[in-house]
Write a protein that binds this DNA or RNA. Sequence first.
DNA 1: CTTAGGG
DNA 2: CCCTAAG
Length: 611
Amino acid sequence: METVVVVEGNDEEKYEDSGVEKGSTSLSSLKEVADPVVYKLVRVEGDGRLVPATDDEVMEVEDFLIDDKTEVNVTTDTGKTEECISSGGPSCLKLQLESSEGLPDSENKKVDAEQLTSRLEEIVPSSALILNGNHNNEPRSIGECSKPADEPGESRSPASGACASSKPDFSKLKGEICLDNLSIRELHELFKATFGRETTVKDKLWLKRRIAMGLTNSCDVATTTFTIKENKLVKGMEESCKNADGTLTGPSMVEAMDISCKNSPTSHCSQIEDHQIVSGKSVRNNRVEFDGGSDDLQTEQRAAKRVRKPTRRYIEELSEVESRDCSPKVSSSAKNIGSEQTSPKSWVKPIRKVSSNERPVVTRLDSLGGSGVQVPYVSRVRRSRPRKNIMALMFHPSGMGMGMAAKVVKKTLMVHGSQPDSECLDQVLKPRSASEQFQPLLTPEDEKDHQCSVIDTIHLGKNLGLKQSDSSEEASDDNLATVPTAKGGMRRKHHRAWTLVEVMKLVEGVSKCGAGRWSEIKRLAFASYSYRTSVDLKDKWRNLLKASLAQTPPDDGINSRKHASVPIPAPILLRVRELAEMHAQAPPKLGSSRLAGVGGRSVQETRSGYL
DNA sequence: CTTAGGG
DNA sequence: CCCTAAG
Protein backbone atom coordinates (compact mmCIF):
# COMPACT_ATOMS: atom_id res chain seq x y z
CA MET A 1 0.00 0.00 0.00
CA GLU A 2 1.22 3.37 -0.69
CA THR A 3 0.26 6.25 1.32
CA VAL A 4 1.38 9.70 0.75
CA VAL A 5 1.89 11.39 3.93
CA VAL A 6 3.36 14.41 5.31
CA VAL A 7 5.53 13.36 8.04
CA GLU A 8 5.32 15.42 10.96
CA GLY A 9 7.85 15.33 13.63
CA ASN A 10 5.70 16.48 16.33
CA ASP A 11 3.44 14.74 18.53
CA GLU A 12 1.11 17.44 19.17
CA GLU A 13 0.72 19.07 15.92
CA LYS A 14 -2.70 19.41 14.69
CA TYR A 15 -3.31 18.20 11.35
CA GLU A 16 -6.92 18.54 11.68
CA ASP A 17 -6.59 22.18 11.74
CA SER A 18 -4.57 22.35 8.69
CA GLY A 19 -6.78 20.01 6.95
CA VAL A 20 -3.90 17.96 5.87
CA GLU A 21 -4.38 14.35 6.06
CA LYS A 22 -2.02 12.69 8.24
CA GLY A 23 -2.26 9.35 6.75
CA SER A 24 -1.41 6.28 8.61
CA THR A 25 2.10 6.88 9.43
CA SER A 26 3.22 6.35 12.88
CA LEU A 27 5.81 8.72 13.96
CA SER A 28 7.75 6.17 15.76
CA SER A 29 8.26 4.16 12.70
CA LEU A 30 9.70 7.00 10.83
CA LYS A 31 13.33 7.43 10.88
CA GLU A 32 13.27 10.71 9.31
CA VAL A 33 11.00 13.00 11.01
CA ALA A 34 10.29 16.41 9.89
CA ASP A 35 11.43 19.05 12.16
CA PRO A 36 9.33 21.80 13.29
CA VAL A 37 10.08 23.64 10.27
CA VAL A 38 10.32 21.10 7.64
CA TYR A 39 7.93 18.73 6.19
CA LYS A 40 8.88 15.95 4.06
CA LEU A 41 6.63 14.43 1.66
CA VAL A 42 7.06 10.78 1.60
CA ARG A 43 5.34 7.68 0.70
CA VAL A 44 5.03 4.92 3.12
CA GLU A 45 5.60 1.58 1.64
CA GLY A 46 3.90 -1.48 2.79
CA ASP A 47 6.83 -2.50 4.84
CA GLY A 48 6.81 0.76 6.57
CA ARG A 49 9.69 2.21 4.68
CA LEU A 50 9.54 5.74 3.69
CA VAL A 51 9.98 6.59 0.17
CA PRO A 52 10.22 10.00 -1.20
CA ALA A 53 7.12 11.03 -2.85
CA THR A 54 6.98 11.47 -6.51
CA ASP A 55 7.11 14.83 -8.01
CA ASP A 56 3.49 14.78 -8.74
CA GLU A 57 2.64 13.84 -5.30
CA VAL A 58 4.85 16.43 -3.97
CA MET A 59 3.33 19.07 -6.04
CA GLU A 60 -0.02 18.02 -5.04
CA VAL A 61 0.76 18.07 -1.46
CA GLU A 62 2.60 21.24 -1.71
CA ASP A 63 -0.32 22.99 -3.09
CA PHE A 64 -2.42 21.36 -0.64
CA LEU A 65 -0.38 22.44 2.22
CA ILE A 66 -0.15 25.90 1.08
CA ASP A 67 -3.73 26.27 0.46
CA ASP A 68 -4.69 24.66 3.58
CA LYS A 69 -2.42 26.65 5.58
CA THR A 70 -3.72 29.76 4.32
CA GLU A 71 -7.11 28.69 4.98
CA VAL A 72 -6.33 27.35 8.24
CA ASN A 73 -4.94 30.52 9.32
CA VAL A 74 -7.96 32.31 8.44
CA THR A 75 -10.26 29.90 9.90
CA THR A 76 -8.64 28.88 12.99
CA ASP A 77 -6.86 31.77 14.22
CA THR A 78 -3.83 33.02 13.06
CA GLY A 79 -1.44 31.27 15.04
CA LYS A 80 -2.13 28.09 13.43
CA THR A 81 -0.01 28.43 10.48
CA GLU A 82 3.07 27.78 12.27
CA GLU A 83 1.57 25.09 14.16
CA CYS A 84 0.63 23.21 11.21
CA ILE A 85 3.88 23.52 9.70
CA SER A 86 6.16 23.12 12.45
CA SER A 87 6.69 20.08 14.33
CA GLY A 88 9.73 18.94 16.01
CA GLY A 89 11.50 16.03 14.77
CA PRO A 90 14.91 14.90 15.40
CA SER A 91 15.99 14.68 11.89
CA CYS A 92 14.77 18.06 11.17
CA LEU A 93 16.80 19.49 13.82
CA LYS A 94 19.70 17.76 12.46
CA LEU A 95 19.16 19.18 9.14
CA GLN A 96 18.90 22.54 10.55
CA LEU A 97 22.03 22.18 12.39
CA GLU A 98 23.90 20.99 9.54
CA SER A 99 22.64 23.57 7.31
CA SER A 100 23.37 26.33 9.62
CA GLU A 101 26.73 25.04 10.12
CA GLY A 102 27.47 25.85 6.63
CA LEU A 103 27.69 29.48 7.14
CA PRO A 104 30.97 29.73 8.75
CA ASP A 105 32.39 26.80 7.14
CA SER A 106 31.28 26.26 3.69
CA GLU A 107 33.11 23.04 3.46
CA ASN A 108 31.41 21.49 6.31
CA LYS A 109 28.22 22.50 4.86
CA LYS A 110 28.94 20.82 1.72
CA VAL A 111 29.87 17.71 3.42
CA ASP A 112 26.81 17.69 5.45
CA ALA A 113 24.74 18.27 2.48
CA GLU A 114 26.34 15.45 0.76
CA GLN A 115 25.77 13.20 3.59
CA LEU A 116 22.22 14.10 3.82
CA THR A 117 21.76 13.74 0.19
CA SER A 118 23.32 10.40 0.16
CA ARG A 119 21.16 9.40 2.94
CA LEU A 120 18.13 10.36 1.07
CA GLU A 121 19.33 8.59 -2.00
CA GLU A 122 19.38 5.40 -0.21
CA ILE A 123 16.02 5.44 -0.62
CA VAL A 124 15.06 7.48 -3.50
CA PRO A 125 17.23 10.14 -4.89
CA SER A 126 15.70 13.18 -6.17
CA SER A 127 12.13 12.64 -5.61
CA ALA A 128 12.18 13.37 -1.98
CA LEU A 129 10.85 16.70 -1.34
CA ILE A 130 11.46 18.73 1.60
CA LEU A 131 8.88 21.26 1.90
CA ASN A 132 9.71 24.21 3.79
CA GLY A 133 6.86 25.38 5.80
CA ASN A 134 6.33 28.88 6.74
CA HIS A 135 8.15 28.14 9.79
CA ASN A 136 10.11 31.09 8.93
CA ASN A 137 7.42 33.00 10.49
CA GLU A 138 7.79 31.17 13.59
CA PRO A 139 11.15 32.29 14.51
CA ARG A 140 10.18 35.69 13.76
CA SER A 141 7.28 36.00 15.90
CA ILE A 142 7.64 39.21 17.51
CA GLY A 143 7.48 38.42 21.01
CA GLU A 144 9.45 35.43 20.78
CA CYS A 145 12.95 35.65 20.50
CA SER A 146 14.87 38.18 18.99
CA LYS A 147 13.14 41.14 17.98
CA PRO A 148 16.17 42.87 17.09
CA ALA A 149 16.96 40.38 14.56
CA ASP A 150 13.66 40.87 13.05
CA GLU A 151 14.04 44.47 12.77
CA PRO A 152 16.83 44.29 10.36
CA GLY A 153 14.65 44.21 7.48
CA GLU A 154 13.74 47.70 8.05
CA SER A 155 16.63 49.77 8.23
CA ARG A 156 19.34 48.51 10.08
CA SER A 157 22.30 46.92 8.74
CA PRO A 158 23.55 46.16 12.12
CA ALA A 159 21.00 43.59 12.29
CA SER A 160 22.35 41.95 9.34
CA GLY A 161 25.65 41.88 10.95
CA ALA A 162 24.19 40.31 13.91
CA CYS A 163 22.55 37.76 11.82
CA ALA A 164 25.66 36.86 10.12
CA SER A 165 27.56 36.56 13.24
CA SER A 166 24.96 34.75 15.09
CA LYS A 167 24.49 32.30 12.40
CA PRO A 168 27.73 30.68 12.91
CA ASP A 169 27.08 30.16 16.49
CA PHE A 170 23.87 28.53 16.20
CA SER A 171 24.90 26.56 13.37
CA LYS A 172 27.74 25.30 15.24
CA LEU A 173 25.74 24.43 18.14
CA LYS A 174 23.26 22.71 16.16
CA GLY A 175 25.74 21.12 13.98
CA GLU A 176 27.70 19.76 16.81
CA ILE A 177 24.84 18.58 18.73
CA CYS A 178 22.78 15.85 17.46
CA LEU A 179 19.81 15.87 19.63
CA ASP A 180 18.88 12.48 18.51
CA ASN A 181 21.80 10.97 20.19
CA LEU A 182 21.61 12.82 23.40
CA SER A 183 20.54 11.20 26.55
CA ILE A 184 17.80 12.62 28.62
CA ARG A 185 20.32 13.98 30.95
CA GLU A 186 22.18 15.67 28.18
CA LEU A 187 19.02 16.99 26.80
CA HIS A 188 18.26 18.40 30.14
CA GLU A 189 21.55 20.12 30.22
CA LEU A 190 21.07 21.48 26.83
CA PHE A 191 17.66 22.57 27.75
CA LYS A 192 18.97 24.37 30.68
CA ALA A 193 21.61 25.97 28.63
CA THR A 194 19.10 27.00 26.13
CA PHE A 195 16.39 28.23 28.34
CA GLY A 196 18.21 28.97 31.47
CA ARG A 197 16.17 26.78 33.58
CA GLU A 198 15.85 23.20 34.36
CA THR A 199 13.23 20.92 33.26
CA THR A 200 11.91 17.76 34.64
CA VAL A 201 10.33 16.60 31.52
CA LYS A 202 11.51 13.19 30.62
CA ASP A 203 10.07 13.12 27.23
CA LYS A 204 12.93 13.08 24.85
CA LEU A 205 10.95 14.07 21.92
CA TRP A 206 9.57 16.97 23.73
CA LEU A 207 12.92 18.04 24.95
CA LYS A 208 14.42 17.84 21.57
CA ARG A 209 11.68 19.72 20.06
CA ARG A 210 11.78 22.29 22.69
CA ILE A 211 15.45 22.80 22.38
CA ALA A 212 15.33 22.90 18.70
CA MET A 213 12.67 25.44 18.88
CA GLY A 214 14.57 27.48 21.30
CA LEU A 215 17.60 27.46 19.19
CA THR A 216 15.68 28.20 16.13
CA ASN A 217 13.85 30.99 17.65
CA SER A 218 16.90 32.43 19.06
CA CYS A 219 18.18 33.22 15.71
CA ASP A 220 16.29 33.94 12.66
CA VAL A 221 19.25 33.53 10.61
CA ALA A 222 19.87 30.10 11.73
CA THR A 223 16.52 29.07 10.61
CA THR A 224 16.96 30.62 7.36
CA THR A 225 20.18 29.04 6.78
CA PHE A 226 19.05 25.67 7.45
CA THR A 227 16.32 26.04 5.07
CA ILE A 228 18.64 26.78 2.37
CA LYS A 229 20.64 23.93 3.10
CA GLU A 230 17.82 21.65 2.92
CA ASN A 231 17.04 22.90 -0.39
CA LYS A 232 20.46 22.36 -1.39
CA LEU A 233 20.45 18.98 -0.12
CA VAL A 234 17.34 18.03 -1.73
CA LYS A 235 17.51 20.03 -4.76
CA GLY A 236 21.10 20.87 -4.76
CA MET A 237 20.53 24.42 -5.44
CA GLU A 238 23.04 26.87 -4.53
CA GLU A 239 22.22 29.06 -7.36
CA SER A 240 18.87 29.82 -6.08
CA CYS A 241 20.41 32.88 -4.75
CA LYS A 242 19.90 34.48 -8.01
CA ASN A 243 16.31 33.87 -8.11
CA ALA A 244 15.86 34.90 -4.68
CA ASP A 245 14.56 38.17 -5.44
CA GLY A 246 11.33 37.56 -5.66
CA THR A 247 9.75 35.39 -7.79
CA LEU A 248 9.93 32.22 -6.08
CA THR A 249 7.05 30.69 -4.48
CA GLY A 250 6.55 28.11 -1.94
CA PRO A 251 9.61 26.37 -0.85
CA SER A 252 11.65 27.97 -3.40
CA MET A 253 10.86 31.27 -1.99
CA VAL A 254 12.23 30.29 1.21
CA GLU A 255 15.28 29.06 -0.36
CA ALA A 256 15.82 32.15 -2.19
CA MET A 257 15.47 34.11 0.86
CA ASP A 258 17.83 32.08 2.73
CA ILE A 259 20.32 32.26 0.13
CA SER A 260 20.10 35.89 -0.19
CA CYS A 261 20.77 36.11 3.41
CA LYS A 262 23.74 34.08 3.13
CA ASN A 263 25.26 35.85 0.31
CA SER A 264 24.69 39.23 1.57
CA PRO A 265 24.05 39.22 5.15
CA THR A 266 22.33 42.40 5.35
CA SER A 267 19.10 43.70 6.34
CA HIS A 268 18.04 42.95 2.93
CA CYS A 269 17.58 39.38 3.49
CA SER A 270 15.32 39.89 6.29
CA GLN A 271 13.27 42.17 4.35
CA ILE A 272 12.78 39.78 1.69
CA GLU A 273 11.81 37.19 4.06
CA ASP A 274 9.35 39.31 5.65
CA HIS A 275 7.78 40.26 2.53
CA GLN A 276 7.45 36.85 1.38
CA ILE A 277 6.06 35.70 4.51
CA VAL A 278 3.70 38.45 4.69
CA SER A 279 2.49 38.00 1.27
CA GLY A 280 2.21 34.36 1.84
CA LYS A 281 0.16 33.42 4.72
CA SER A 282 1.10 35.25 7.68
CA VAL A 283 -0.55 38.34 6.70
CA ARG A 284 -3.85 36.92 6.99
CA ASN A 285 -3.15 35.40 10.20
CA ASN A 286 -1.83 38.44 11.71
CA ARG A 287 -4.73 40.35 10.66
CA VAL A 288 -7.30 38.13 11.89
CA GLU A 289 -5.61 37.42 15.01
CA PHE A 290 -4.49 40.64 16.12
CA ASP A 291 -6.59 42.89 15.08
CA GLY A 292 -9.21 43.30 17.11
CA GLY A 293 -9.81 45.84 14.85
CA SER A 294 -7.40 48.29 13.86
CA ASP A 295 -6.44 48.78 10.34
CA ASP A 296 -3.42 50.46 11.46
CA LEU A 297 -2.05 47.28 12.60
CA GLN A 298 -2.16 45.73 9.30
CA THR A 299 -0.92 48.64 7.54
CA GLU A 300 1.81 49.06 9.89
CA GLN A 301 2.75 45.54 9.72
CA ARG A 302 3.19 45.56 6.09
CA ALA A 303 4.66 48.88 5.85
CA ALA A 304 6.78 48.61 8.80
CA LYS A 305 8.09 45.51 7.72
CA ARG A 306 7.30 42.72 9.44
CA VAL A 307 5.71 42.38 12.45
CA ARG A 308 6.15 39.16 13.93
CA LYS A 309 3.57 38.51 16.28
CA PRO A 310 3.96 35.76 18.60
CA THR A 311 2.43 32.87 17.03
CA ARG A 312 -0.30 31.03 18.59
CA ARG A 313 1.89 28.15 18.40
CA TYR A 314 4.42 29.83 20.39
CA ILE A 315 1.92 30.69 22.93
CA GLU A 316 0.75 27.22 23.09
CA GLU A 317 4.19 25.98 23.36
CA LEU A 318 4.86 28.21 26.18
CA SER A 319 1.82 27.23 27.95
CA GLU A 320 2.67 23.72 27.44
CA VAL A 321 6.07 24.11 28.78
CA GLU A 322 4.91 25.99 31.70
CA SER A 323 2.31 23.57 32.59
CA ARG A 324 4.60 20.73 32.18
CA ASP A 325 7.77 21.92 33.64
CA CYS A 326 7.05 24.34 36.19
CA SER A 327 4.11 24.81 38.05
CA PRO A 328 1.90 26.74 35.95
CA LYS A 329 1.97 30.13 37.18
CA VAL A 330 -0.33 32.30 35.70
CA SER A 331 -1.22 35.51 36.97
CA SER A 332 -4.01 36.86 35.22
CA SER A 333 -5.70 39.89 36.12
CA ALA A 334 -8.14 40.32 33.58
CA LYS A 335 -11.66 39.66 33.62
CA ASN A 336 -12.58 36.24 32.72
CA ILE A 337 -9.61 34.54 31.76
CA GLY A 338 -7.60 34.09 34.69
CA SER A 339 -8.86 31.05 36.29
CA GLU A 340 -8.97 28.33 33.89
CA GLN A 341 -5.60 27.81 32.75
CA THR A 342 -4.88 24.47 33.87
CA SER A 343 -4.10 22.87 30.69
CA PRO A 344 -2.25 24.29 27.83
CA LYS A 345 -5.18 24.03 25.66
CA SER A 346 -7.36 25.94 27.92
CA TRP A 347 -4.92 28.71 27.69
CA VAL A 348 -5.23 29.05 24.13
CA LYS A 349 -8.84 29.52 24.10
CA PRO A 350 -8.99 32.33 26.46
CA ILE A 351 -6.26 34.01 24.67
CA ARG A 352 -7.90 33.90 21.41
CA LYS A 353 -10.95 35.25 22.73
CA VAL A 354 -9.23 38.09 24.18
CA SER A 355 -7.26 38.91 21.21
CA SER A 356 -10.13 38.94 18.93
CA ASN A 357 -12.63 40.59 21.06
CA GLU A 358 -11.86 42.67 23.94
CA ARG A 359 -8.75 44.32 24.77
CA PRO A 360 -6.73 41.78 26.33
CA VAL A 361 -5.81 42.99 29.61
CA VAL A 362 -4.71 39.74 30.84
CA THR A 363 -1.21 39.05 31.55
CA ARG A 364 0.49 35.93 32.33
CA LEU A 365 3.74 35.07 33.81
CA ASP A 366 6.04 33.78 31.36
CA SER A 367 8.24 31.38 33.01
CA LEU A 368 9.73 29.91 30.03
CA GLY A 369 13.03 31.47 30.32
CA GLY A 370 12.94 31.08 33.92
CA SER A 371 12.21 34.63 34.43
CA GLY A 372 8.75 35.42 35.37
CA VAL A 373 7.85 38.05 33.05
CA GLN A 374 4.49 39.38 32.87
CA VAL A 375 3.51 39.43 29.38
CA PRO A 376 0.34 40.87 28.36
CA TYR A 377 -1.39 38.56 26.12
CA VAL A 378 -2.07 41.33 23.92
CA SER A 379 1.45 42.14 23.51
CA ARG A 380 2.12 38.65 22.62
CA VAL A 381 -0.27 39.02 19.99
CA ARG A 382 1.63 41.91 19.01
CA ARG A 383 -0.41 44.63 20.25
CA SER A 384 2.37 46.94 20.79
CA ARG A 385 3.37 46.85 17.28
CA PRO A 386 1.10 49.55 16.20
CA ARG A 387 2.95 51.85 18.37
CA LYS A 388 5.92 51.30 16.27
CA ASN A 389 7.83 51.34 19.32
CA ILE A 390 10.59 49.04 18.71
CA MET A 391 11.49 48.95 22.24
CA ALA A 392 8.15 47.68 23.09
CA LEU A 393 8.73 44.84 20.82
CA MET A 394 11.91 44.17 22.48
CA PHE A 395 10.22 43.51 25.66
CA HIS A 396 7.93 40.99 24.33
CA PRO A 397 10.34 38.83 22.67
CA SER A 398 11.34 37.29 25.75
CA GLY A 399 8.50 35.15 25.96
CA MET A 400 9.42 33.20 23.07
CA GLY A 401 11.65 30.40 23.00
CA MET A 402 13.85 31.68 25.61
CA GLY A 403 11.98 33.10 28.37
CA MET A 404 14.93 34.21 30.23
CA ALA A 405 15.71 36.53 27.54
CA ALA A 406 12.71 38.54 28.27
CA LYS A 407 13.78 39.81 31.50
CA VAL A 408 17.19 40.17 30.38
CA VAL A 409 16.19 42.16 27.50
CA LYS A 410 14.22 44.36 29.61
CA LYS A 411 17.00 44.78 31.89
CA THR A 412 19.27 45.47 29.12
CA LEU A 413 17.10 48.13 27.87
CA MET A 414 17.00 49.60 31.20
CA VAL A 415 20.64 49.54 31.40
CA HIS A 416 21.10 51.14 28.16
CA GLY A 417 18.72 53.76 28.94
CA SER A 418 20.37 54.61 32.11
CA GLN A 419 23.76 54.26 30.81
CA PRO A 420 25.14 57.36 29.39
CA ASP A 421 27.68 55.60 27.39
CA SER A 422 25.48 53.12 25.83
CA GLU A 423 27.06 53.07 22.55
CA CYS A 424 25.12 51.64 19.84
CA LEU A 425 21.83 51.03 21.22
CA ASP A 426 20.36 49.95 18.02
CA GLN A 427 23.16 47.80 17.08
CA VAL A 428 23.32 46.34 20.41
CA LEU A 429 19.78 45.55 20.57
CA LYS A 430 19.80 43.01 18.00
CA PRO A 431 22.84 41.18 18.80
CA ARG A 432 21.99 41.51 22.30
CA SER A 433 18.83 39.79 22.25
CA ALA A 434 20.47 36.86 20.77
CA SER A 435 23.33 36.83 23.08
CA GLU A 436 21.32 37.47 26.07
CA GLN A 437 19.32 34.52 25.59
CA PHE A 438 22.28 32.52 26.30
CA GLN A 439 23.94 34.74 28.69
CA PRO A 440 21.38 36.73 30.39
CA LEU A 441 23.60 37.86 33.03
CA LEU A 442 25.56 40.82 32.34
CA THR A 443 28.09 41.66 34.79
CA PRO A 444 29.15 45.17 34.92
CA GLU A 445 32.38 44.22 33.44
CA ASP A 446 30.74 42.37 30.72
CA GLU A 447 28.42 45.08 29.99
CA LYS A 448 30.72 46.88 27.72
CA ASP A 449 31.49 43.93 25.70
CA HIS A 450 27.97 42.98 25.47
CA GLN A 451 26.81 46.15 24.17
CA CYS A 452 27.72 45.67 20.70
CA SER A 453 29.11 42.38 20.49
CA VAL A 454 27.92 39.86 18.28
CA ILE A 455 30.92 38.09 19.32
CA ASP A 456 29.43 37.13 22.51
CA THR A 457 26.65 35.61 20.78
CA ILE A 458 28.85 33.64 18.64
CA HIS A 459 30.93 32.57 21.42
CA LEU A 460 28.02 31.43 23.33
CA GLY A 461 26.61 29.74 20.43
CA LYS A 462 29.63 27.70 19.90
CA ASN A 463 29.81 26.60 23.35
CA LEU A 464 26.27 26.16 23.93
CA GLY A 465 26.19 22.61 23.01
CA LEU A 466 28.96 21.76 25.27
CA LYS A 467 29.75 22.57 28.72
CA GLN A 468 29.86 26.14 27.90
CA SER A 469 26.28 26.12 28.39
CA ASP A 470 27.11 25.79 31.97
CA SER A 471 28.81 29.03 31.99
CA SER A 472 25.79 30.63 30.63
CA GLU A 473 23.82 28.85 33.16
CA GLU A 474 25.87 30.08 35.93
CA ALA A 475 25.62 33.49 34.71
CA SER A 476 21.97 33.22 34.46
CA ASP A 477 21.72 31.76 37.83
CA ASP A 478 23.34 34.66 39.38
CA ASN A 479 21.23 37.17 37.84
CA LEU A 480 18.24 35.36 36.87
CA ALA A 481 17.14 33.00 39.41
CA THR A 482 13.99 31.21 39.49
CA VAL A 483 12.47 31.38 42.81
CA PRO A 484 9.85 28.96 43.60
CA THR A 485 7.03 30.60 45.27
CA ALA A 486 5.11 29.11 48.03
CA LYS A 487 2.21 28.94 45.76
CA GLY A 488 4.11 26.83 43.43
CA GLY A 489 4.63 29.44 40.91
CA MET A 490 8.00 30.28 39.72
CA ARG A 491 8.91 33.80 40.07
CA ARG A 492 11.88 35.02 38.37
CA LYS A 493 14.06 37.58 39.51
CA HIS A 494 16.87 38.73 37.70
CA HIS A 495 18.44 39.87 40.68
CA ARG A 496 21.84 40.81 41.09
CA ALA A 497 22.87 40.06 44.53
CA TRP A 498 24.03 43.07 46.35
CA THR A 499 27.62 42.90 47.20
CA LEU A 500 29.11 44.26 50.27
CA VAL A 501 30.83 46.87 48.30
CA GLU A 502 27.65 47.97 46.80
CA VAL A 503 25.98 48.13 50.13
CA MET A 504 28.80 50.16 51.48
CA LYS A 505 28.63 52.46 48.58
CA LEU A 506 24.99 52.82 49.09
CA VAL A 507 25.40 53.64 52.70
CA GLU A 508 28.08 56.04 51.91
CA GLY A 509 25.96 57.62 49.30
CA VAL A 510 23.10 58.00 51.64
CA SER A 511 25.31 59.56 54.18
CA LYS A 512 26.43 62.04 51.63
CA CYS A 513 23.32 62.81 49.81
CA GLY A 514 20.79 61.70 52.26
CA ALA A 515 18.17 59.10 51.84
CA GLY A 516 15.77 59.90 49.14
CA ARG A 517 18.20 61.35 46.70
CA TRP A 518 18.55 58.05 45.00
CA SER A 519 19.24 59.30 41.62
CA GLU A 520 22.00 61.40 43.02
CA ILE A 521 23.47 58.56 44.85
CA LYS A 522 23.18 56.49 41.83
CA ARG A 523 25.12 58.92 39.84
CA LEU A 524 27.76 59.41 42.41
CA ALA A 525 28.32 56.03 43.83
CA PHE A 526 26.86 53.72 41.30
CA ALA A 527 27.92 55.22 38.10
CA SER A 528 29.70 52.08 37.21
CA TYR A 529 26.90 49.86 38.21
CA SER A 530 24.57 50.25 35.39
CA TYR A 531 22.32 47.55 36.61
CA ARG A 532 21.45 49.33 39.77
CA THR A 533 18.76 51.79 39.34
CA SER A 534 17.81 54.44 41.71
CA VAL A 535 14.84 52.39 42.57
CA ASP A 536 17.06 49.51 43.35
CA LEU A 537 19.03 51.67 45.66
CA LYS A 538 15.96 52.79 47.33
CA ASP A 539 14.71 49.30 47.75
CA LYS A 540 17.96 48.13 49.04
CA TRP A 541 18.11 50.91 51.47
CA ARG A 542 14.73 50.05 52.62
CA ASN A 543 15.82 46.55 53.24
CA LEU A 544 18.92 47.63 54.98
CA LEU A 545 16.94 49.79 57.22
CA LYS A 546 14.64 47.08 58.06
CA ALA A 547 17.49 44.78 58.76
CA SER A 548 19.30 47.23 60.85
CA LEU A 549 16.30 48.04 62.89
CA ALA A 550 15.38 44.51 63.33
CA GLN A 551 18.55 43.48 64.85
CA THR A 552 19.10 46.56 66.77
CA PRO A 553 16.85 46.23 69.72
CA PRO A 554 17.82 43.50 72.03
CA ASP A 555 20.85 41.61 71.18
CA ASP A 556 22.94 43.49 68.85
CA GLY A 557 26.16 41.78 68.57
CA ILE A 558 24.88 38.35 68.45
CA ASN A 559 22.23 38.91 65.97
CA SER A 560 24.17 40.98 63.67
CA ARG A 561 26.76 38.41 63.21
CA LYS A 562 24.48 35.57 63.45
CA HIS A 563 22.34 36.49 60.64
CA ALA A 564 24.46 34.19 58.74
CA SER A 565 22.18 34.27 55.86
CA VAL A 566 22.56 37.95 55.78
CA PRO A 567 26.05 38.84 54.95
CA ILE A 568 25.66 42.38 55.80
CA PRO A 569 28.14 43.16 58.47
CA ALA A 570 26.84 44.62 61.61
CA PRO A 571 28.85 47.73 61.33
CA ILE A 572 27.17 48.56 58.16
CA LEU A 573 23.82 47.94 59.61
CA LEU A 574 24.69 50.18 62.43
CA ARG A 575 25.70 52.79 60.09
CA VAL A 576 22.47 52.39 58.29
CA ARG A 577 20.59 52.77 61.42
CA GLU A 578 22.54 55.76 62.31
CA LEU A 579 21.86 57.39 59.07
CA ALA A 580 18.28 56.49 59.31
CA GLU A 581 17.98 58.14 62.61
CA MET A 582 19.74 61.16 61.46
CA HIS A 583 17.55 61.57 58.54
CA ALA A 584 14.51 60.85 60.45
CA GLN A 585 15.32 63.41 62.98
CA ALA A 586 16.93 66.02 61.02
CA PRO A 587 14.90 66.76 58.05
CA PRO A 588 11.42 66.27 59.08
CA LYS A 589 10.38 68.13 61.94
CA LEU A 590 11.65 67.86 65.23
CA GLY A 591 15.04 67.74 66.23
CA SER A 592 14.01 67.52 69.66
CA SER A 593 13.31 64.10 70.71
CA ARG A 594 15.92 62.53 72.46
CA LEU A 595 18.32 62.06 69.98
CA ALA A 596 19.43 64.77 68.10
CA GLY A 597 22.76 64.77 69.29
CA VAL A 598 23.18 62.64 72.19
CA GLY A 599 20.63 59.97 72.16
CA GLY A 600 21.42 58.82 68.75
CA ARG A 601 25.04 58.88 69.30
CA SER A 602 25.01 56.93 72.38
CA VAL A 603 23.01 54.27 70.87
CA GLN A 604 25.28 54.03 68.00
CA GLU A 605 28.28 53.87 70.10
CA THR A 606 26.89 51.12 72.07
CA ARG A 607 26.35 49.06 69.11
CA SER A 608 29.61 49.79 67.62
CA GLY A 609 31.16 48.68 70.78
CA TYR A 610 29.61 45.35 70.44
CA LEU A 611 30.64 44.95 66.99
C1' DC B 1 12.15 61.60 35.22
C1' DT B 2 12.55 60.95 39.94
C1' DT B 3 10.49 59.69 44.27
C1' DA B 4 7.64 56.87 47.30
C1' DG B 5 5.20 53.07 48.50
C1' DG B 6 2.83 48.68 47.80
C1' DG B 7 3.00 44.03 46.06
C1' DC C 1 12.64 43.01 42.42
C1' DC C 2 8.63 44.98 39.90
C1' DC C 3 4.96 48.17 39.20
C1' DT C 4 2.36 52.23 39.88
C1' DA C 5 1.17 56.54 41.60
C1' DA C 6 2.41 61.10 42.45
C1' DG C 7 5.26 65.40 42.31
